[in-house]
Design a protein around this nucleic acid. Structure first.
Lengths: 124, 124
DNA sequence: CCAAATATATCGGATGCCGATGTATTGTCA
DNA sequence: TGACAATACATCGGCATCCGATATATTTGG
């Protein structure tokens, strides 16, 4: 019975599909990008990201292609470093807008609880 | 060491402290209230709520008092139904504003990814 | 009178989370 | 040139979380 809930995963999915909506990225760069965008608030670790990326790909929300980066220095002989580039699929794009909608729904409920005060402080 | 992260719990904490900030409620009424407020988007179940309420109380974020509701019909002899009313403590109020701040931080990152379109629907 | 709703509560199996770990290549700097 | 940091991918397993199932009791409505 598909459709099980994966608590934390949902917001991670939102974030990952979100960055990939802008442009294709490879795993390591996703980690850096998200950290930068969130000012280190969201720290994806390899142990969390890669399995998630595999799941997302299995679900056809994203797709990948390999790139082999060969260094000049090392020359022809080197095996090269491998990068797996991920990009959103059409299905992924649909899922993303669903997630955004769901997030906004939650958000509006939160705002209903705590209407932003005009005189609110702007952080400490 | 205390201070471990509890993924899903955090947003639940936000929601629960949020409703209790408005007025004291008892468990069952929290479930109904949250369901109503979120238009059934957030369905707290007893199995999730009560343990969480106990934790929150142990952490002194909320406090409780028992009420015994005796029905007219049943009369003096009846044991009465028990309601455990919860209300926010000062500590709970501080925690709540922390959670709101954290939520808004996450929120603003999401907005950075997906800037709200000017032509967006306002929902009803 | 009985079923549904109200009301609180616990428990345990399934699942998710993520730190630790592993492997390999490239960049850098003394 | 050697070695350490950073880049880059990936898996695994233990512990914590999650939440459905379950238990118990009272009240309300038809």
């Amino acid at each position: 019975m598909p459709g099980k809930v994966k608590p934390q995963r949902e917001s991670l999915e939102l974030v990952i599909l979100g960055v990939l909506a802008e442009e294709p990225l490879y795993g390591y760069s996703i980690i850096k990008r998200v950290a930068a965008r969130s000012e280190d608030a969201i720290r994806l670790t390899a142990g969390v990201l890669y399995p998630l990326l595999h799941e997302l790909e299995a679900d056809r929300l994203i797709a990948s292609t390999w790139e082999t980066v060969r260094s000049e220095r090392a020359g022809e002989a080197s095996a090269g470093r491998k990068r797996k580039w991920y990009h959103l699929t059409a299905k992924g794009r649909r899922r993303l807008s669903q997630r955004i909608t769901a997030h906004r729904a939650f958000q509006s409920m939160i705002e209903a609880f705590f209407p932003p005060r005009a005189d609110e402080e702007t952080a400490t």
